[in-house]
Simulated scan of single mutants.
Amino acid sequence: MKLTLALDWTPNSMHAGILVAEAKEYFEDNGLGLEIINPASDNYATTPAKKLSQKLVDLAIAPSESVII
């Protein structure tokens, strides 16, 4: 299974668990492909929550206020 994850900010220590798991190939070892989307790739034009709502990614890390309607 292939998943895409939109980060909320440039990769940093808050993403350490995900980045370490990717580097140690834990996802691949368990049948998952993970593509990590850095928000700088579109110059922060689209928020992670917006990418998720537009189905551009499968998962997103976003601030809690992103889910308030």
Rank of each mutant, 00 (worst) to 15 (best):
I61E: 13
I37N: 06
L19C: 08
L19K: 04
M1C: 13
S64A: 10
P11E: 11
G33S: 15
K50H: 00
K50C: 02
Q54K: 06
A45E: 09
A21P: 01
G31M: 03
Q54I: 02
P11G: 01
L34P: 01
S53G: 10
A49S: 04
Q54R: 07
E35P: 05
I69A: 14
E65H: 11
A62H: 07
G17S: 08
A16Y: 15
K24T: 03
T46F: 01
S64K: 07
K24M: 02
S64F: 06
K24C: 05
D58H: 09
A16S: 06
A62P: 03
K55G: 06
P63N: 05
P39N: 03
S13I: 15
L59W: 01
K2G: 02
Y26A: 05
S41V: 08
I68M: 08
I69K: 07
V57M: 07
T10H: 08
Q54G: 01
L5A: 07
L32E: 09
A23T: 11
N30V: 12
W9I: 13
V67C: 03
K2F: 03
A23D: 06
A21I: 09
G31Q: 12
S66M: 10
T47Q: 02
T47G: 10
Y44C: 09
M1R: 12
D29F: 04
A21L: 15
L56H: 01
I36E: 15
V57S: 01
H15Y: 05
L52T: 01
A23M: 03
E22W: 06
E28D: 15
S64Y: 03
T46N: 01
L34H: 00
L56D: 03
N30F: 03
L34W: 04
N12R: 14
N12Y: 15
D58E: 10
I61K: 02
L56K: 00
K55D: 13
D8N: 08
A6I: 09
A40T: 14
L3I: 04
G31K: 12
A23I: 05
A16P: 02
L5H: 14
I37V: 12
N38Q: 04
D58C: 15
V20L: 14
G17Q: 11
A40P: 03
M1A: 11
A21Y: 14
Y44G: 00
A21M: 11
L5M: 12
T4G: 06
K24E: 05
I61R: 13
M1W: 06
V20M: 05
I36C: 09
E35V: 03
L19M: 07
Q54C: 02
